[in-house]
Design a protein around this nucleic acid. Structure first.
Length: 822
RNA sequence: GCCGAAGUGGCGGAAUCGGCAGACGCGGCGGAUUCAAAAUCCGUUGCCCGCGAGGGCGUGAGGGUUCGAUUCCCUCCUUCGGCACCA
């Protein structure tokens, strides 16, 4: 053994093959007539300043394996990558340093791209796109206008978390205890004019059309989020007044049990209902509530609070007068913002009644008998039998609900109604770094003013005008100062951009921008045809690749991104732009990778692993294989640096065993069987995304082949192929050294001989009373008699059966032989 | 509080139409190689008792079904994720 063996050197191999793939345009997606296709998509990243972390490559490696495997199986693959590049961090950096967000974004994209390329992912980079690209923004705005024209984008006064000190609105998560999370400045709930998308119009379809999709628990999360509930709206009169109070209830059967009413503090009638005696208390309470964020209103409210208005409602059926209260547990944004309170049969109403000494009446009985609800310690919210309810008496809950709604509709007192928790989507932000909303408004100039940039004027927000398609894209103006501050948005400062003249009249552009979600709602569609100047994509490109067959990304997007994207897709479906009602057939969430200390990776915890370091030390292939070997893709799992070392050793052994392959000779029978079993298992495991067990099977194989004096070339090639989706650089290099001229990217996946994947002879366990006492080798198809004969003189078995009576024998061929004795 | 997922060696994890628990990897121990070390290779490694042969115990806890349960059923505990007064 004097000949010097070459060493596995990923730092030499990996750049070599990455360059070859790029020069050869190896992974540009092409469609071949008659071949099956797969559209394999990753959730594209936000290119942050800190670069890639090891969590990113987890999902990306999994999809890359599927993509590469699919190509080897003769499937046309579309596997693109791009950038979700609008977003707050670039803007905040701009505020701090004055660097334009576009510059920061460009740098960050370059870093991400370099890092992704260093990992050898087989993306079709010719289709790369960024949501900040002007051509991309154009079509994002175009879709917005589709919605606007269909009445799905409208303006509304919506209460938002406004922080005057920071000069911006904040997300609910950014508000703690009524103060901004950053800086601790006061936050107020204030209504602001906002663009809103009518996602509620699609609530039913968004819930019901999940049905056929191959998605995990995410489906249920979305259904819960949409929160459909069926019930009725009922009108209550007001004593001595003409108005009505409309309420929503899911329990119309309990109408006779209503003993008081509660309005949300922001309900329109509150002010007029407050009697002089109560007025002060009502207004004080309302002011107090207005200062609280949604979070505080809900999370901290253990104890019910509320104030009596002094007015009374009139029960629509009994005519009884019911006191009207206001309380913050009734939400202004849900239903009608008002409820009838049935304390006997609703937990919240019960608590409230107890808190304020209001009457509690039983109208649903668990057993049909009558009970005194005032003595109860909790509400009876289950189904039962109606009592004290006139024409409902004796009916079961479901039947009573229907009977009551029928009655209300007949009498014109109420209607059947479906409600959703899902709200319309507040779509505007007061930020700079987002897509401009392609809308403008007429401007009315004050007396004597000729230019709204320098004089008093009124913007007619009630008369929004859409840009023409030909006027798109509407660019962002350049700003010196990116600071937010104006409730109308950072863009108000760009006066020359904002105000313009047309046919001698002045107009003002919308100064709100779109949220970051916008760009990510439809990027999978632009990947189909990213360079198309005329259309959002061509029909041909659509037909070639849609729908997305596999979509992989974090479960943090289970609800919002995936719901928003589905919503846009359905709008485009209704507009005839896309042909499938749903965009993503199969969805998988990769689990988070934790730091070595089992905590979430973060700079502050000091447990961040940088993929660049791993690549430098062990190569991209080791990183890829390790991340897949850690455990099931969907599981949350901690990083173990030594685990990478173990995988590196595996790849070293592969290199040593296969790079020295020689001769055409056959493998010995046992190795050959193992090879065929492994080919079978790796293929099956990849298709089921069980990548960890595929790797362990290949480890077993290399451990065996490494024991041979020499591995014959055909076996080496087969092994190289099945490992190649996982460790593509190493395998391309081996493939070349094994005498192949072409890249293995499109070489056929090896087949296996099914006969070689099952053993003729198997070792089964021999038990006595369920305890393993011996083992015996048998033919796979051995009968029970064969098995018994084989162990008839087995001393270990006899030891436990001798002198005892055989009661029963269980024989499962290929598995077990169990003697039950006593 | 509600919903969902999951609890298996020192660690990551395998194995569920009920049939040999702990594959594979890490770590540990012992050995080979080396002047020595690193790297590599070989052996060994769930726990307890035993010199040994061997035996017992073991998949979060407790029950149940079964010849047989990590796998099915019931009760409970813990961890993680999501939701959070939605009438």
């Amino acid at each position: 053994m004097s000949s010097e063996r070459s060493k596995y050197d990923p730092s030499a191999i990996e750049p070599k093959w990455q360059a070859r793939w790029e020069e050869g345009r190896t992974f540009e997606a092409r469609r071949h007539p008659g071949r099956p296709k797969k559209y394999i998509l990753d959730m594209f990243p936000y290119p942050s300043g800190s670069g890639l972390h090891v969590g990113h490559p987890e999902g990306y490696t999994a999809t890359d394996i599927i993509a590469r495997y699919s190509r080897n199986k003769g499937i046309d693959v579309l596997h693109p990558m791009g950038w979700d590049s609008f977003g707050l961090p670039a803007e905040q950096y701009a505020i701090k340093t004055g660097t334009h967000p576009a510059v920061t974004t460009g740098h960050n994209i370059a870093t991400f791209k370099r890092q992704l390329k260093s990992l050898g992912f087989s993306y079709d980079w010719s289709r790369e796109l960024a949501t900040t690209d002007l051509e991309y923004v154009r079509w994002t705005q175009w879709i917005f206008l589709q919605m606007f024209r269909r009445g799905l984008a409208y303006q509304a006064e919506i209460p938002v978390n406004w922080c005057p000190e920071l000069g911006t609105t904040l997300a609910n998560e950014e508000v703690v205890d009524g103060k901004s999370e950053v800086g601790g400045h006061p936050v107020v709930r204030t209504p602001l004019r906002q663009w809103t998308l009518k996602i509620t119009a699609y609530a039913d379809r968004l819930a019901s059309e999940l049905e056929g999709l191959d998605w995990p628990e995410t489906k249920k999360k979305q259904v819960d989020w949409i929160g459909r509930s069926e019930g009725a709206e009922v009108d209550f009169g007001i004593a001595d007044r003409p108005e009505k109070i409309r309420i929503f209830t899911t329990r119309p059967d309990t109408l006779f049990g209503a003993t008081y009413m509660v309005l949300a503090p922001e309900h329109a009638l509150v002010e007029s209902l407050a009697t002089p005696a109560q007025r002060e208390a009502v207004l004080a309470y309302r002011a107090e509530v207005a200062g609280k964020s949604d979070m505080d209103r809900t999370a901290l409210a253990k104890k019910k609070t509320g104030v009596f208005t002094g007015s009374y409602a009139v029960h629509p059926l009994s005519g009884a007068e019911l006191p009207i209260w206001i309380a913050d547990f009734v939400l202004g944004g849900y239903g009608t913002g008002a409820i009838m309170s049935v304390p006997g049969h609703d937990e919240r109403d019960f608590e409230f009644a107890r808190e304020f000494g209001l009457p509690i009446v039983e109208v649903v009985s668990p057993d049909g008998g009558l009970h005194d609800a005032m003595t109860w310690s909790e509400a009876f919210a289950d189904d039962g039998v109606s009592v004290r309810s006139s024409f409902l008496d004796g009916k079961k809950t479901a039947e009573a609900k229907a009977a009551m709604i029928d009655h209300l509709e007949r009498e014109g007192l109420g209607v059947r109604k479906v409600q959703y928790k899902l709200r319309d989507w507040v779509f505007s932000r007061q930020r700079y770094w987002g897509e401009p909303i392609p809308i403008y408004f007429p401007v009315e100039l004050a007396e004597g003013v000729v230019d709204p940039r320098h004089g008093a004027h009124t913007i007619r927000f009630d008369r929004p005008i859409a840009l023409e398609d030909s006027e798109l894209p509407l660019r962002l103006p350049d700003l010196e100062d990116f600071r937010p501050g104006d409730p109308a948005g950072a863009l108000v400062k760009a006066l020359d951009w904002r105000f313009f003249q047309k046919d001698g009249r002045w107009f003002a552009r919308e100064t709100n921008t779109m949220p970051q979600w916008a760009g990510s709602c439809w990027y999978y569609l632009r990947f189909l045809d990213p360079k198309n100047q005329e259309q959002i994509f061509s029909q041909q490109a659509y037909d070639a690749w849609m729908p997305v067959d596999l979509y992989v990304g974090g479960s943090e997007h289970a609800v919002l991104h995936l719901l928003y994207a589905r919503f846009w897709h359905k709008v485009l479906y209704d507009a005839g732009v896309v042909k499938h009602p749903e965009p993503f057939i199969k969805l998988v969430h990769q689990g988070m990778i934790l730091g070595e200390n089992n905590e979430k990776m973060s700079k502050s915890r000091g447990n961040v692993v940088n993929p660049d370091d791993v690549v430098k030390q062990h190569g991209a292939d080791s990183l890829r294989v390790y991340e897949m070997f850690m455990g099931p893709l969907e599981a949350v799992k901690p990083w173990q640096t030594n685990g990478v070392v173990g995988v590196r050793r595996f790849l070293d052994r592969v290199w040593n065993a296969l790079s020295a392959a020689e001769g055409e000779g056959p493998l010995d029978d046992e190795s050959n069987r193992l090879l065929h079993k492994t080919i079978k298992k790796v293929g099956e495991d990849i298709e089921a995304l069980r990548l960890n067990t595929a790797i362990s099977a290949m480890m077993i194989l290399v451990n065996r082949l490494g024991d041979l004096d020499v591995v014959p070339v055909p076996a080496a090639k087969a092994f190289t192929m099945i490992l190649s989706p996982f460790a593509p650089h190493l395998c391309e290099e081996l493939w070349e050294r094994l005498g192949e001229k072409e890249s293995l990217a499109y070489a056929p996946w090896p087949s296996f001989d099914p006969a070689l994947t099952v053993d003729d002879e198997v070792e089964i366990a021999v038990q006595v009373n369920g305890k393993v006492r011996s083992r015996v080798k048998l033919r796979r198809d051995a009968t029970e008699a064969d098995a018994r004969a084989a162990v008839a003189s087995d001393e270990a078995v006899l030891q436990h059966t001798r002198g005892k009576t055989e009661k029963k024998v269980i024989y499962v061929p290929g598995r077990i032989l169990n003697f039950i004795v006593g």
